[in-house]
Amino acid sequence: MATPRFYCPIPLPLNETIALPDNVAHHASRALRLREGDEIVLFDGKHGQYHAELLFTNGKAMAAIKHYNAQEHELKGKITLVQGLPSGDKMDWIIEKASELGVQHLIPVQAERSVLNLTGSRLEKRQDHWEKVAISAGEQCGRNRILQIEPLQTLARFVADHPQPDNKLLCHPEGGTDLVAYLKARPDIKEICLIVGPEGGWSDRELDLLKKNGARQITYGSRILRTETAGLALTAACSALMDWV
């Protein structure tokens, strides 16, 4: 069994014993049923990870921090996924798998054809839920840095905040540059931004906005991929083709 890992965004001083945050303590003692003396791994999302021994003092879960491991499990390059908001709970799947595949940033976009429409308290709850999904995925897959999820935004907001056109790849099934050919011609790039529409795709107006702001339309394979598949498939392809894994 792999050593249980917990995201713990608090100071983690070596050779000291700290009280675990309530959510971590509950997960360790109630959900996983860990016992006194079990080895655990803590990481703060900034760098490396800390190996510790689980202790219980007056019913309070504690961690005696033993040593630090600077090893990271990040891609050699940076991948950002711009994801048109899908229906239902598909975003949970996308966040979980994007984290496992090494995506550093995920930008959810309320597209014109997005079926789901999130506002107010409902949006706040969903955004908080997405953060928890990303944390859980990071704990499971061995990454010491949590996938960063930006606030849900319009496509116009994304374009305004990201004016540089370099390596913005508009994933579209109808025409465009072949992804493999595009990457082979650019062996030295270090960042890629993949832009994926919702179930109904980007509207003509959105496509025009993206292209006018430097996004290059690309294709990958001869089949049409679902929104929850496209970004993940292209992330894996880019990582392999660029030898970033």
Rank of each mutant, 00 (worst) to 15 (best):
F6D: 00
F6E: 00
I10F: 09
P13D: 01
N15E: 12
I18L: 12
A19E: 11
P21T: 10
V24R: 01
H27I: 02
L32F: 05
L34H: 10
R35M: 12
E39A: 14
L42F: 12
D44K: 14
G45H: 11
H47I: 07
H51N: 14
A52R: 08
E53G: 12
N58Q: 15
G59I: 08
A63P: 15
N69Q: 15
N69R: 15
A70E: 14
A70V: 09
A70C: 12
A70I: 07
L81K: 05
G84V: 07
L85R: 11
L85N: 12
P86Q: 06
S87N: 14
G88I: 03
G88P: 12
W93Y: 15
W93P: 09
I94M: 05
I94R: 07
A98M: 07
A98C: 12
H105F: 11
H105G: 04
H105K: 09
I107W: 11
I107N: 12
P108I: 00
E112V: 04
L116F: 01
S121T: 07
I135Q: 10
S136P: 01
G142S: 08
R143W: 01
R143E: 01
R145A: 01
Q153S: 07
L155A: 00
R157T: 13
V159R: 03
D161A: 11
P165A: 04
K168T: 02
K168I: 00
K168R: 08
L169D: 02
C171G: 08
E174H: 10
D178V: 03
L179F: 05
V180P: 15
R186N: 12
D188Q: 13
K190E: 06
I192V: 15
I195L: 11
G197I: 04
P198T: 06
G200L: 06
G200T: 07
W202V: 01
R205A: 11
K211W: 02
K212R: 14
N213M: 02
N213Q: 10
G214H: 12
A215E: 05
I224Q: 12
L225S: 09
T229I: 08
T229D: 11
T229A: 13
G231F: 00
L232V: 03
L232D: 00
A236Q: 06
A237D: 05
C238D: 01
S239V: 10
D243C: 08
